[in-house]
Simulated assay, not measured.
Amino acid sequence: MVKKKHAFLLMVIPAFVLFFTFHTYPALQGIFYSFTDYKGYGNWDFVGFKNYFNVFQDGRALSAYGFTFQFAIVATILVNIISVLIAIGLNSNIKLRKTLRATYFLPYILSVLIVGYIFKFMFTHLLPQIGQALNIEFLSTNILGNPDLAWLGIVLVAVWQSAAFNTLLYLAGLSTIDDQVYEAASIDGAKPWARFWKITFPLIAPFFTINMVVAMKNFLMAFDQIVALTGGGPGQATESISLLIYRGGFQGGEFAYQSANAVIYFIVIVAISIIQLRVLERREVK
């Protein structure tokens, strides 16, 4: 028993030390500096909650919050709709299920930055050339250079790459539904939409909850896609909170101020996740 306890400690302690060193300690340090005027270098003094109050008066920060919420909500809705449709299609095709599952999961394992740069080339050069050749005005220009349309390009890339993970979860949920339930519904004359809304969706509701919470959290933390595609531009039209915190904290001498912004954003993400869980869990079949 003693040997097992020692073995357990030998496995846990190194992991705990690494996690605390590279995750917990930097987080606590950031919270500490959020109450100071630290610029990332030099001396500092305590300023209390001044940085937190300034965040709510910063037009650039509020604009970044607005863009991030807009992007996250639209992307979360789209990725779940697309993932459900793909999962239902794969689930109905037993012969090609494994092959197609591997194909759809491929984008998820690719580097976000590499995918972003590839799509940036497509938006900048390939699609405009195709649009000009076919006389399609919408495709003839680079949407990433349009302040009103650039965010749509980011949504497209983010949804395309994220759909794989959500699809796998929905496939796992569909595999738990007994085929006899559908057979009984067919005998009763239920149409496809009725079978989905009355049978499929309620039974995969726990997986829907997980996907909604995880997708929203990931999209709220969007960073790599934006860096690769637009760099936050044109201007500041696609600047997310994560990108703003990085730029201000590590490049703009606003380490303490952006640390306060990060703390606020962490609280916002946690609050949104808890609200999602509370609301969506009510729809689950008990």
Rank of each mutant, 00 (worst) to 15 (best):
P147S: 03
G232M: 04
Y265K: 12
Y265G: 10
L78V: 13
S259Y: 09
F69E: 00
S259K: 11
Y170D: 04
V115M: 09
L62Q: 00
A194L: 11
I264G: 09
L229C: 07
T68M: 00
F35E: 08
A72M: 10
T200I: 01
D188V: 10
G248D: 02
V214Y: 00
E183Q: 11
N135S: 14
T68L: 03
T68E: 04
L110A: 14
F19M: 12
L149A: 09
V74W: 07
F71T: 07
V74M: 12
F49R: 09
L244C: 02
F255Y: 10
D148H: 12
G231M: 11
T76C: 12
S34N: 10
I88E: 03
G89K: 00
V263Q: 05
I226R: 10
E239G: 03
V181N: 08
Q57C: 09
T238S: 02
G253Y: 03
V214K: 05
L277V: 11
T24Q: 15
W151T: 04
S111G: 14
R283C: 15
W151P: 06
K120Q: 15
N142H: 01
A150R: 08
M221K: 15
A215E: 04
L18R: 07
I77Q: 07
F69K: 08
F138I: 11
F219H: 04
V17P: 06
D148L: 13
T230C: 03
I187P: 05
K5V: 14
K217F: 00
T230E: 02
G253F: 03
I241L: 08
I177Q: 06
F223P: 00
Q258L: 15
A228W: 06
I109M: 12
I86E: 01
T238Y: 02
V285M: 12
F49L: 14
L168H: 07
V157I: 10
Q57N: 15
R60M: 13
L28E: 05
F16D: 03
P26W: 08
N54K: 15
D37I: 10
E284T: 13
Q57Y: 09
K120M: 12
Y108H: 12
N54Q: 15
D179K: 12
A185S: 09
A256P: 05
Y65I: 15
T141A: 06
F196W: 01
A237L: 05
T21F: 03
I82C: 00
V12H: 01
Y108I: 12
L277H: 02
S259Q: 11
Q225E: 12
I109K: 14
I177S: 09
R97L: 04
V213E: 02
L127C: 06
Y104D: 04
K50A: 08
E254S: 08
R60I: 12
V270T: 04
R97Y: 01
G116N: 09
N261A: 15
Y108S: 13
R97K: 13
H23C: 15
L139A: 03
G131H: 04
I143A: 01
L244M: 09
V17H: 03
K4E: 14
F255D: 00
K95Q: 02
A228K: 11
I13Y: 01
T24K: 14
